[in-house]
Design a protein around this nucleic acid. Sequence first.
DNA 1: CAGGTTATTGCGTAAAATGATATATTTGCA
DNA 2: TGCAAATATATCATTTTACGCAATAACCTG
Lengths: 287, 287
Amino acid sequence: MDLKPLQHFLSLAETLHFGRASAACHISPSTLSRSIQQLEDKLGVSLFKRDNRSVNLTSEGIKFEKYAREALVQWSAIRNELMAESKELKGEISVYCSVTASYSFLYDILRRFRHRYPSIEIKLHTGDPDSAIDLVTSGKEDIAISARPDQLPTEIRFHSIGLSPLVFIGPASGEIETPQSLNDWSRTPMILSEKGIGRKRVDRWFTAKSVKPRIYAQVAGNEAIVSMVSLGLGIGVVPQIVLDNSPLSDKVQILDIKPWLAAYDVGLCVLEKKLKSPLIQAFWELL
Amino acid sequence: MDLKPLQHFLSLAETLHFGRASAACHISPSTLSRSIQQLEDKLGVSLFKRDNRSVNLTSEGIKFEKYAREALVQWSAIRNELMAESKELKGEISVYCSVTASYSFLYDILRRFRHRYPSIEIKLHTGDPDSAIDLVTSGKEDIAISARPDQLPTEIRFHSIGLSPLVFIGPASGEIETPQSLNDWSRTPMILSEKGIGRKRVDRWFTAKSVKPRIYAQVAGNEAIVSMVSLGLGIGVVPQIVLDNSPLSDKVQILDIKPWLAAYDVGLCVLEKKLKSPLIQAFWELL
DNA sequence: CAGGTTATTGCGTAAAATGATATATTTGCA
DNA sequence: TGCAAATATATCATTTTACGCAATAACCTG
């Protein structure tokens, strides 16, 4: 029972473009090409009319599209029906994320999942966001919430759930002026993550501006940055989502500094292999 | 798009017996066992309740049975619809059989096929029935009509279309008496195939009876046997189907000689591999 | 006609399926 | 109770299939 070819077909029918469709399916163009060819062989008709520059559904392809959608819906339906009946998808899923994420993104997801699969236990672990990918890769956690790293390991599947701008913040009191000139920058004390995606982006930003920042403190955890900035120790860089969920958000202000830093692409990570497990797959399909 | 697991499931749901179900699917029991396990993994529920002695559908299995049937029907339907629309399943299929078979069994099959797929050309070759299996195995012919040999090559799929008794015949004039005693047998001239399944069965029959027959002629082709017998040269052994289609059938008579020879199991042969081809598959599914 | 884009195809590698054999557990019968 | 038969599953070696990279060929655009 393998319905991947149907998904491939539908993806290609939507995009009419092998490159984009294959990317959407997380496969290579050649695999997609052959997947379609096999379908066509089994059906005995060609589903797409394609020259080297364009792709279009044939009349048979249009008919098959209906079938493919229905077939996938029905499979999904029987799957859910059976799972629902034996409410025993007993087991547990471990989820790792930062404290902030547990307040914001995670809440809705877990509520839905809990409602749908009440017998599945979720073990929630919070900690350093920068460890998230490693913990998933090594299999210590099933799922993690993390910002998408610049290059995603191939064995990781990522599902974006939102963008959060990376913003400069200063104390609300205004006791530290927004830096303008290069000179300002070299005088203003900075409070930065000691590592991680955010730190890398900030470093690149400074390099592009040819500024050597005066680093006052390097800390672990965005929440700590907010604390220190609110105390007037310097200006910092945090994802806006952290501010939205911080009790100190009225003690700091977002600074209008350009160019903007590239936003965080926050989403869920899971090991590709684990998507075969019914539990993990059930979770993933709720997204 | 692989629906084999569904067929496996349905087969097991019918028989509730791994051995018989796997035989029906032309796979080994272990393959069937794993096929079911994989389905259950994907669904997250168990479809059969089985101890080491019995197999039974679970309540989920019963629901899934409905789904499986429908899914197969729908797949078959879209397949036929698409094929029918593009009446171009253009291509050709080569069929090999004996002259007799071309008169009897083949007629109905070809008529249905021609009606369903008018654009497929059928190349019909007639010849020695004993070569049929070899021609299919070597790929020289797509499909052949043949009696099922005592042991079928594993790569050949056989579909029975009828039994034809293997009968002793003598001249209608009665000028040759039906042999009774061992002595009679050693005096009566026999006209036999020089090789082939029929000849083997006859040889075994004589061996079991401890008779050494007096062989008058060994010929190629059952039609030739009928001719010689009708001329009164001896008694022979042919499949009854040959008589039914022979213009000489009133010149010979069937002799009441016991024990009966095992009947021919006549059917179609195809190379397992070729069933993947849409043309061959279309033909095969009409049976 | 040149340059870039894009579906397809060869090919080497990795993963999966398959069937023969072995194992464990249960049932039937003595 | 103990022995034998039956049978679903596990293991392993082999074959088959899938996958992605890189190269190819065909086509559009300027």
